[in-house]
Design a protein around this nucleic acid. Structure first.
Lengths: 353, 353
DNA sequence: CTGAAAGCGCTTACAG
DNA sequence: CTGAAAGCGCTTACAG
C-alpha cells in the first residue's frame, strides 16, 4: 500500500520484480507467475516459498507488463441515470476504488433519466469502445433486454442497488423491503397514526419492494394506524413536490410523511414549510438513501445505504466473472445484500397531541 | 474512437501496432516512435508519411506497452473537500475524461472540509502511494504551504476553480469577479434597491473575488441602491440558514438576496419559506455555481461554472507539465479562465411594489 | 535524420 | 510440477 510505484522525478526507485521473487524463492519466473495467476499446478511447498518471498519483498506485479503480456486490459463501464448527485458520487467512489484495487479501468457514462433510448445508445457506445464488464445502476439495472444484449456479447454485467433475487444477472444492494418495513415501524412506534407515503417510480424494482415493506409494517400495526394516504412520486424532487401537495391538501389528517427517497423527502419538507407547517413539530418527514444529509433543514431521518461499498463490491464481482470468462469457466450470478441502517435525525418527532 | 481495444471473449481482434505503421510508411519502428513522442529529429517528409499511416490505420499506441517501456505510469491525484456533491461529480467527470484521454490514472481522495490537518494527511498519503501530479480543489488550492511541499517533491500541481492570477501554481477556473459583478448588476437592473448578500467562506479566494465583484456592481449603481445588507456565511447550507435568518430578521427591507453559492442560496429560500415569504414574489434569491438545479423549488437563478470542462483542462495541464518535468524542461505555470454564464430561472423577479 | 538492437516485467505454450 | 524461451508493443541509447 505504501510503496511508491511511480518513478519520481529525479529519483529512480527500484521495485521488486518477478525475477527478484524467483531468485529469493529459488524457483523460475514461470513458477512465480503461475502461483500469482492460476494458483494451480504448483507444489504446495513451492507455493509457500513464493508467497513468502512476495510478502517479504512487498512485491506487486507490474500492471503494464501484465497487460502487455496477456493483451487483456480490463475495462469496466459504469452507466448511470439517477438524479441524485450524492448517490452517484458515492457509487463512483466505491467503483473507482474497486477498479484500482483490481487494476481495472473504469469508463463512466451518464445519461438523463427517463429517456431509455438515449440510455441504450450510451451503453452501446461504451461497448463499442471495448468493454469487458458493465455496472448498471438503477433503473438501468432493470432493463432485462439490455442486460441480455450485453451478456450475449460476452460482457459481464452487475446491477447496482437493485436487490430482489434475480437469476439473470448479478446484483448488489440493500434489502429494500426490510429497510422500508423498519422505517415505517419506527414511525408507528413513535405514535404516528396518520401517515402519508410518497411512492417511488413505478418502473423501479426498489420502489416496489419499499412499498411492499411499508405495507407490511402498516398491516402489522393493525387498527392502531388509520388508513394511510398514498401519493405517486417518480423519485425526483419535482414529483415529490406534487405528491406532498396532494397529501397535504387532501384535508385528511397527516402527522408523518414517508417518502420513497431523500430527494422527494426534501421536497415534502419544502412543501410543508410553504404551507406553514413546522417539521418535525407539526409533521414528521422521513426519506430513504441518505444522500442529502446536511443540505436540508431540519436534517432528515432516513435509511442509509452504504453506496460506496456497493460500488466496490460490484467491481469485485465483475472482475471475478471476467476472469472466469477468460479462463473458459462459466460466470457466476451473485446476489449480494449489504447491511443498511436507520439514521434518526431531526425531521422526526412524536406526533403533536 | 469506435475501435474495440479490448479482446472480446472469443473473438481475437487485431489492432495496428507500431510495426504496421512502420511498414506502411516505409520506415523503422524507431522513427515511428520518434514521431509519436518527441516529434523532433525527424525529417518533415518522413513525419508526414508516418502521420498519414497512423491516420489510415487508425493507430493508437498501446498504453501498456508504452508504460512498460518508459517505466512511467502517469498518476494524478484529486483531492477534494467541498460540501457540494454535484460540484464534485462534475469535476470528477471532467477529470476522469481528461485522464483517459491522456491515458493517466486518477486517484481520488475526499476529505472533510474544515479540518486542514486531515486534508494535509490525505494529500500526503496519496503522495506516498506514488504520484506525478495533483489536482487541488478549493479550498485546498489555496494552501500555499501544501502546494510548495508537493512541488518540492517534483509533483506537478494545478488548482481548480481558483481564479485570480497566481504565479506559484497553475490554475483553472472562471472569472469570479466578473461573474459576481454581472449577477449583481442583473439584480439591480431588475429594479431591486434593497439587496442582501451572504458572503462566502472568508478563507477562500473565490469568496473574496465574488464579494469584490458585487461591491463594484453596487458602487457602479450609485444612489439608486440602498446600503446593502451583508451577512457572513461559510459556503455550507447550515451557515446559509443563519445568514439568511440574520438578514431577514434585521427589520431592514430586503427584496433580493444574493448568496455566494447555491447551497447557501438554497438555505436562504428555505428560511424565506419558513418566514412565510414567497420566492420570488416577495423576495428574489440568486446563487452561484449551478450545482443544485432541479433539487430546489423554485429553480434557482445562478451562475453556471463549466466544472467538468475545468476538470478536464486541469488534467491536460498536469499531463503537459509532467511530460516537461520528465524531459527535463521546466514546468509551466498556466492560468486558464473559462467562460461562465448567468442562468436565469425561477427564483428571481421584479421587486414587489 | 534514421535503423538495429536491447530491454521494460510479465505470461504462456512447449518440453521435460 | 517446473524451467527455458519466445513474445506482448513500445522506447531509447547507440551507431551511423
Amino acid at each position: 500500500m505504501g510503496e511508491n510505484k511511480v518513478k519520481r522525478a529525479g529519483k529512480a526507485d527500484a521495485f521488486a520484480t518477478i525475477y527478484d521473487i524467483a531468485r529469493r524463492a529459488g524457483v523460475s519466473k514461470s513458477t512465480v507467475s503461475r502461483v500469482l495467476t492460476h494458483n494451480k499446478s504448483v507444489d504446495p511447498a513451492t507455493r509457500e516459498r513464493v508467497l513468502k518471498a512476495v510478502k517479504e519483498l512487498r512485491y506487486s506485479p507490474n500492471t503494464a507488463a501484465r497487460n502487455l503480456s496477456t493483451r487483456s486490459e480490463t475495462r469496466i463501464g459504469l452507466v448511470y441515470s439517477n438524479p441524485s448527485a450524492t448517490y452517484f458520487t458515492e457509487l463512483l467512489f466505491g467503483a473507482l476504488e474497486g477498479s484500482s484495487r483490481n487494476s481495472a479501468h473504469l469508463m463512466v457514462e451518464r445519461c438523463q433519466a427517463g429517456d431509455m433510448d438515449v440510455a441504450y445508445e450510451r451503453v452501446r457506445s461504451l461497448v463499442a469502445g471495448g468493454l469487458n464488464g458493465m455496472i448498471l445502476a438503477t433503473p438501468l439495472s432493470e432493463e432485462v433486454t439490455l442486460i441480455k444484449e450485453l451478456q450475449d456479447q460476452g460482457i459481464s454485467v452487475v446491477g447496482v442497488a437493485t436487490s430482489g433475487t434475480r437469476t439473470d444477472v448479478s446484483c448488489v444492494g440493500i434489502d429494500n423491503y426490510t429497510a422500508a418495513y423498519e422505517m415505517m415501524t419506527y414511525l408507528i412506534r413513535l405514535g404516528h397514526e396518520h401517515i402519508g407515503f410518497v411512492k417511488g417510480h413505478p418502473g423501479v424494482l426498489s420502489s416496489k419492494l419499499r412499498f411492499q415493506g411499508i405495507k407490511a409494517a402498516l398491516k402489522n400495526a393493525g387498527d392502531s394506524v388509520a388508513r394511510p394516504l398514498f401519493a405517486q412520486g417518480y423519485n425526483d424532487y419535482r414529483s415529490g413536490l406534487n405528491a406532498a401537495d396532494e397529501i397535504l391538501s387532501s384535508g385528511t389528517k397527516v402527522t408523518a410523511i414517508f417518502a420513497n427517497n431523500d430527494d422527494m423527502a426534501s421536497a415534502v419538507m419544502s412543501m410543508a414549510h410553504r404551507k406553514g407547517l413546522n417539521v418535525p413539530r407539526d409533521i414528521s418527514v422521513v426519506g430513504f438513501d441518505d444522500t442529502i444529509a446536511g443540505t436540508v433543514w431540519p436534517e432528515l431521518t432516513t435509511v442509509r445505504q452504504p453506496i460506496a461499498e456497493i460500488g466496490g463490491l460490484a467491481v469485485d464481482i465483475l472482475v471475478e466473472n471476467i476472469r472466469r470468462i477468460r479462463a473458459g469457466t462459466p460466470p457466476l450470478v451473485k446476489n449480494h445484500l449489504i447491511a443498511h441502517k436507520l439514521v434518526i435525525r431531526e425531521s422526526t418527532a412524536l406526533p403533536r397531541l
